[in-house]
Design a protein around this nucleic acid. Structure first.
Lengths: 174, 174
DNA sequence: TGTAAATAATCTACATGTAAACCTTTATGT
DNA sequence: ACATAAAGGTTTACATGTAGATTATTTACA
């Protein structure tokens, strides 16, 4: 039972069923990023699940295929945006599915190499077309110019992430 | 040991330490969205944690404050992008922190209303400035025109999310 | 009226992301 | 050589997101 004055005047505002307009265009842009991400993640999640994988698992496999040789756990974690401990369980489950194997390095017995199996390579090959097709399906209605501009703006947005101040943050860049 | 021809020629490519260029501008734009989201989530996550909240918890509180009156669980869930079952645990933890209270509706005994407490209102007020400040910190270096264009492009991107075809998907819109 | 269908919320099971502590192995400093 | 620090992984604890099943109520309708 919204009162008459509560009509959203904006698409994102309507999507989120927000009564009031955004505090600032900054906030609106940030929420647009989060919202778009959620919808994309949702789509890709379903696609990957169709092949028995999660998004993170697919991501690990893609990284390994791109590298074309076994990689240490932490190097994989480094290329994902994740933090260290999550990688262990991830690799555990991929190993249980026989998509990767672990082998301890002989020179430095601390490091564990992770390698793709043939099964994983075949699975990835099968997924290539559907994945690319989904990328096109999600973004194909934007012009080349719009795609380029979108990427440029998002990259520009990320430039300040590291220096953005948090309340308790006592370490500006020296 | 990357060979000479493996130099990334692109910012995102470099960030992800990707050897090869992207398959398509569509893919690049999608990955830019995901990457930007991760970095933003990370920043906001830390800010919220500083106040003893997670991003989802803060989101619930904001929705309740915006509505300005008690809401049924599912209506809250509906405004988040999440699926139903997760909301229960979320409310449980907020209730344990005395930030919300549950009250069963008398007319329809299936629904449970969730209401903000004064403690939550005070906490939200405390957080308003830092949160807005972070929004500005993340996006303040984009011009008003760029912010508007970014929001426009992201909204345009979301327009096709629902109709984007998945492999096993036998239900195009009728 | 009585039964089936729809709703609101919850529970369970599993994969993930975050933080902090820990173990083993390797590198360093004196 | 020995103590210490650093590095690579793992473990534990907790909050979340997804899917599917379940309970309690309410609504629809034959």
């Amino acid at each position: 039972m919204a009162s008459k004055s509560d009509q959203p005047t904006n698409r994102l505002q309507a999507e989120l069923k927000k009564r009031r307009p955004f505090d600032s265009p900054h906030q609106e842009a940030v929420l647009n990023v989060l919202r778009t991400n959620d919808q994309f993640q949702n789509k890709f999640g379903r696609l990957f699940r169709h092949y028995g994988l999660t998004a993170s698992q697919y991501n690990v496999l893609r990284i390994l295929r791109g590298e074309a040789k076994p990689m240490p756990c932490l190097e994989i974690a480094d290329r994902m945006i994740q933090v260290v401990p999550a990688i262990t369980g991830l690799i555990d489950r991929l190993e249980a599915q026989e998509l990767v194997i672990r082998q301890r390095c002989r020179e430095d017995r601390r490091v564990v190499f992770v390698a793709l199996t043939d099964k994983a390579r075949k699975l990835l090959d099968t997924m290539d077309e559907p994945v690319m097709s989904l990328h096109r399906g999600l973004m194909g209605h934007l012009t080349q110019l719009e795609l380029k501009e979108l990427s440029r703006l998002l990259e520009k947005a990320r430039q300040r992430v590291d220096s953005a101040q948090l309340p308790g943050d006592q370490t500006p860049s020296p």
